[in-house]
Design a binder for these strands. Structure first.
Lengths: 219, 219
DNA sequence: AATTATTTTTAGGTAAATCTAAATAATTTA
DNA sequence: TAAATTATTTAGATTTACCTAAAAATAATT
């Protein structure tokens, strides 16, 4: 099935909204896609006709099995490109979204799979979101960004968003790796740095940049 | 000025046809774009209205100054992506065109310039065509692929299409570099390999793959 | 030069993806 | 529960990028 760019954007938006809220309403979609409810209704009919949605008029939509599959390949592409932009082209993690919005629509399975291999099959994108593999399977760790954690919480590193050589070097130097358990001592509003304490070791200071690259789960 | 994908494809097609034949006719464009003459006329009017073309009904078109500038940025993107696909993602040089046709339409000046830097500011794409720089300036060497050269011709290496580490290693090993002058002794139809002779050195055998990566000019 | 053939343009139409305005269904509130 | 509000759909238009068929301009041939 070959989707247009607009169709792909609808599928992706439904995927994300459905993740957060179950059944997705026409108005939610219109807001999320910066379009009007009437336009959404039109498109829902077309996507339903292509068997990508479960749609009952006035009752909102969810993705069908096929729709979910399509959504996962788009999400996979989006996140792989984000990883590429940050890790290889030195984009800031906060400036990659727009560009990835365009790159995700390039249709070539071979391109995506080769890109994946080139990047070393990363499991998380620069924002810490899991990247689906070529079968649509992705990590489901319930994770938080270190920046969002309250002081005094005990947490465990579950992934590293940006896997550049420089970051890996920094992490090795600080003795932090996936699985490391530590306590958040306090956060400094001035520079958004974070003081942490690793078990049986003295406390460390984590810069904002590093904190944004670390994804953790509560322990 | 923000062009649609279709508009960009017209500009690009006119650029290439104009290179070869001067004034470009409606029929030529229709053939080149797999569309009908009537559709071409429509688009020519729109692009003329955007000041990208010099168009006189029944007389064919050429690109205006603005149009040429647009064309060069599209060609730049296309060729940089082709280089990326071959050099980084290990695509074959003969399978990158389609994918680059899509990637070339991603709009982000920053992306292109960062990609250019990441690739090491290559001067030629994997087919040996020159890559315009960010000002639209490109090498104008009249070059041939080694594969297309007649035996007994004296030629000089003027560029290397694919600049992978492996290829550069092979070239160093064979003592071939940009500027190297040699004679094509003969070509073997069986495996398309080529026998060459470098001045003051014994003769060498060049595989088809290597020959396809070497671009030369007649001396 | 007049006729024929070719090329190009005009006229009118279609599908995708959007819009506004009006109608209808569902939900909330009095 | 009836009225008011909100959400959604339908109806009818618009723009882009195509199309076919017919008309007009240019080029080729006798």
């Amino acid at each position: 099935m070959n989707l247009t760019v607009a169709e792909e954007n609808y599928i992706k938006a439904i995927f994300h909204l459905q993740q957060a809220e179950g059944n997705v309403s026409t108005n939610q979609l219109a807001a999320s896609l910066n379009t009007k409810p009437a336009s959404v209704t039109d498109m829902l009919k077309r996507l339903t006709h292509k068997n990508l949605l479960n749609y009952e008029p006035y009752q909102g939509v969810t993705l069908s099995k096929d729709g979910k599959k399509q959504a996962l390949t788009i999400v996979r592409k989006h996140r792989l490109w984000e990883f590429f932009l940050v890790d290889k082209l030195q984009f800031g993690w906060d400036e990659v979204h727009e560009v990835a919005e365009e790159l995700e629509h390039v249709r070539s399975k071979k391109l995506v799979d080769k890109l994946d291999a080139f990047l070393g099959h990363p499991k998380f994108d620069p924002h810490g979101d899991p990247i689906p593999d070529s079968n649509g399977i992705m990590a489901t760790i319930r994770q938080f960004n270190l920046i969002d954690i309250n002081p005094t919480a005990w947490v465990e590193v579950c992934s590293v968003g940006i896997q550049s050589a420089e970051l890996l070097e920094l992490l090795r130097h600080k003795n932090i790796g996936i699985g490391t358990i530590f306590q958040v001592i306090r956060k400094f509003d001035f520079d958004h740095s974070i003081e942490i304490s690793i078990k049986n070791s003295k406390s460390l200071n984590i810069s904002q940049q590093l904190a944004q690259a670390l994804f953790v789960k509560l322990v």
